[in-house]
């Protein structure tokens, strides 16, 4: 723990390890992004990529980088950061390592919204809007069902599992109602994909991150840390428990919803990123910023794998996050159990 003391009574407390993880993760994600922009059927050298990003470069390079590849990359980074951050908040609030938006039904709710648009008909803007609305509505439903008694960890997880089950049924029914072509498109969306994503997809997620990250999450991080010791302890230390919880839950649901609107329900990222972040920082607490950074780097890497792992054939990124994330988590949890007891 490093303490910075500034004149005027200001003091900041920093964990060196968390700081290193955050910085290294950011650098890694950026380096990966430069390489990724250069990769593809028309390869561009990293130096040329940097030249374009600095405002120069040849017209062809400029077009390919800023119009074709960069939007998808930025979408990946933003969606990854949003999901990592939201996952860290959910796990902290539920005091449960499995308390992720996938398990609690927020992601399924976003899928329901999108599927309704597929069945009723509508463009991709309507689909994104409906996905966000579905996620938010599910968040409200969760709060209405589990919130009366203070959104205790167990209750929220159990109610969430029930909600997920119901929504999975509804989603299956909606898929059978959709015309065949639309059902195929919907199935692709449900896997989670960054294919063909442009600035219009990236901007809402970036906006949500820009507002929610500092305003709600970083400002509330100390209170979230205390909430992990139990509601009573946190209240005894002066945390306005209900208010902090509603604000954090609302922000996390919003992030998941806009992320799902941009890229579909990308599975397992919100669950895996905070685990990996905590392993790296070895710090107790929600590890908000490291989780966001790890999420961004992970989704970017997964999307590169999805594009280039199988030659001549692109996979939806959700397939990669599902296989790798799920596998990593199973390995991690099996190892922890074996190691501890």
């Amino acid at each position: 723990m490093i303490v910075l003391r500034l004149p005027g009574g200001l003091s900041l407390r920093l964990r060196p390890r968390a700081l290193v993880v955050g910085l290294a993760g950011t650098l890694l994600a950026l380096a990966l992004a430069v390489l990724a922009v250069g990769a593809g059927d028309y390869p561009i050298a990293p130096a040329d990529v940097l030249r374009v990003l600095a405002g120069g470069g040849s017209p062809a390079d400029r077009f390919i980088v800023t119009e074709l590849r960069l939007p998808r990359l930025v979408t990946a980074l933003a969606v990854g950061a949003a999901l990592g951050l939201a996952g860290a908040v959910f796990q902290s609030l539920t005091r449960n390592p499995l308390g992720s938006p996938d398990v609690l039904g927020v992601t399924s709710g976003a899928a329901t919204g999108a599927l309704v648009v597929v069945v009723v008909g509508g463009g991709s803007a309507a689909l994104a809007g409906a996905a966000a609305a579905g996620g938010l509505a599910t968040g409200l439903l969760l709060y209405a069902l589990a919130g009366r008694h203070g959104v205790g960890g167990h209750r929220l997880v159990l109610v969430g599992i029930g909600v997920t089950a119901i929504l999975t049924g509804v989603n299956g029914w909606l898929l059978t109602r959709a015309p065949l072509m639309d059902a195929a498109r919907a199935a692709l969306w449900l896997t989670g994909s960054l294919d063909g994503r442009g600035w219009a997809n990236a901007l809402p997620v970036l906006g949500a991150l820009a507002v929610l990250l500092p305003a709600v999450l970083l400002a509330r991080a100390p209170a979230l840390r205390l909430l992990e010791m139990g509601d009573d302890s946190a209240a005894g230390l002066g945390v306005p428990v209900r208010r902090v919880r509603v604000a954090a839950l609302g922000a996390a649901v919003l992030l998941v919803s806009v992320a799902a609107a941009a890229a579909g329900p990308v599975s397992f990222l919100a669950l895996t990123a905070p685990h990996l972040a905590r392993r790296l920082t070895r710090a107790p607490g929600p590890n908000l910023l490291p989780s966001a950074v790890v999420g961004a780097a992970l989704l970017l890497a997964a999307d590169q794998l999805a594009q280039h792992a199988v030659a001549g054939r692109q996979l939806p990124v959700g397939v990669v996050t599902g296989v790798l994330g799920g596998g990593y988590l199973a390995w991690l949890l099996a190892g922890e159990r074996g190691g501890r007891r």
């Binding site: 010791m229 139990g230 302890s233 209240a235 070895r282």
Partner: peptide, 11 residues
């Protein structure tokens, strides 16, 4: 306050 239900997070 020292409540009954205090939990120390892992580590």
């Amino acid at each position: 306050l020292l409540p009954q239900s205090a939990v120390a997070p892992d580590g």
